[in-house]
């Protein structure tokens, strides 16, 4: 098969540019413009590739559909007002709801966000606004954030276990710390991306007016990047809200009742509840797990869609 009309195989002569350059060299040869069988075969191969790429995309969307449909179908039957407002029964078995887990997850994730969002945004500000171009520490920080993002979440869970739980016992606070570690690199990364998009002319204008660096950041740069930072934070929070592994070792030995205090004892939460129920054999427990999964999935997907809409709108505004 000759992929290009000049007969050179651009894959074997690796860089694309050189393949393009070699084309005019043959231009002295008279072009044969009649359709050969070869051309038909090349077109056929291309159509096969088109079709399989389309099929792959369809498959991915279908898997998403099957998954969401499965959760909705299985979860809908256990969903009710009582399911959302009552606590799980003390000793397992049917009945009751997941109210305490909902409250717990909201509290744990909120505290985690309160830790991760400021640190993440400040770290991003440091990287984009304050660090010198050749700052060694900036490079170390960037590397650390990347590596942190690549940490398996179960490793984060064991780390927080060793740091806060061993010798002290489970606590909702330890769970928040673990989720904050998951969120931090995501927030820092996405904030950095947005901050880099703030036009340089804004910074220069502020500098020309004699505004100090800090006042520029607070008064000019942060407002310009705000919607992007909010979007990134929402996505990171949504990601962390569904994480189980970081909580499994540090916040799983809870009692079924509502806990409003995150310190000193474990706090019920949705992901760990789904995990333990799915590992057990109790059918009513599995039904509760599906209901909880539906609630969690609905919130996370809604947050994702909301963040995307927000992002698209702010992009349209900045680009005019």
């Amino acid at each position: 098969m000759s992929p290009l009309p000049d007969g050179t195989d651009p894959v074997d002569s690796a860089p694309a540019e050189s393949a393009m350059e070699s084309a005019p060299a043959d231009s002295t040869a008279p072009a044969d413009l009649t359709a050969s069988g070869n051309l038909r075969r090349r077109a056929a191969i291309s159509r096969v590739v088109d079709a399989s790429a389309t099929a792959s995309a369809l498959l991915a969307v279908a898997v998403l559909g099957v998954l969401v449909f499965g959760v909705v179908k299985q979860g809908a039957s256990s969903l009710s007002f009582d399911f959302l407002t009552e606590n799980p029964p003390q000793f397992g078995g049917p009945g009751g709801g997941i109210a305490s887990a909902i409250v717990g997850t909201v509290l744990i994730v909120t505290l985690a966000a309160m830790m991760a969002v400021p640190i993440g945004v400040l770290a991003a500000l440091y990287l984009t606004e304050f660090a010198g171009r050749r700052s060694g520490f900036a490079r170390v920080l960037k590397m650390a954030l990347d590596l942190m993002q690549g940490l398996p979440t179960v490793v984060v869970g064991l780390f927080v276990f060793g740091l806060l739980v061993a010798g002290h016992g489970n606590s909702g606070f330890a769970g928040s710390v673990a989720l904050a570690i998951v969120m931090l690199p995501l927030i820092a990364r996405s904030s950095q991306e947005v901050l880099l998009l703030v036009p340089h002319s804004l910074r220069e204008a502020a500098e020309a007016l004699g505004v100090s660096r800090w006042r520029t950041v607070v008064g000019v740069i942060l407002p310009a990047a705000l919607s992007g930072i909010v979007t990134g934070s929402i996505l990171a929070i949504a990601r962390a809200a569904g994480e189980t592994a970081p909580l499994l070792f540090v916040d799983s030995l809870y009692t079924p009742g509502v806990q409003l205090n995150l310190f000193g004892h474990a706090v019920p939460n949705i992901p760990v509840m789904i995990f333990t129920l799915s590992e057990g054999a109790d059918p009513s427990g599995v039904a509760r797990a599906w209901g909880a999964a539906l609630v969690l999935l609905a919130v996370i997907l809604a947050a994702n869609i909301g963040a995307r809409v927000l992002l698209a709108r702010s992009r349209r505004r900045t680009m005019g």
């Binding site: 998403l64 990601r239 789904i274 995990f275 799915s278 999964a293």
Partner: peptide, 24 residues
Amino acid sequence: VVGPLVEMLAAIPSVILGLWGVIV
């Protein structure tokens, strides 16, 4: 439409994927 849907697949919490995996 399809791009965000594919990304949405990555947003599904692993515990829900696992629940679906073990039961369905």
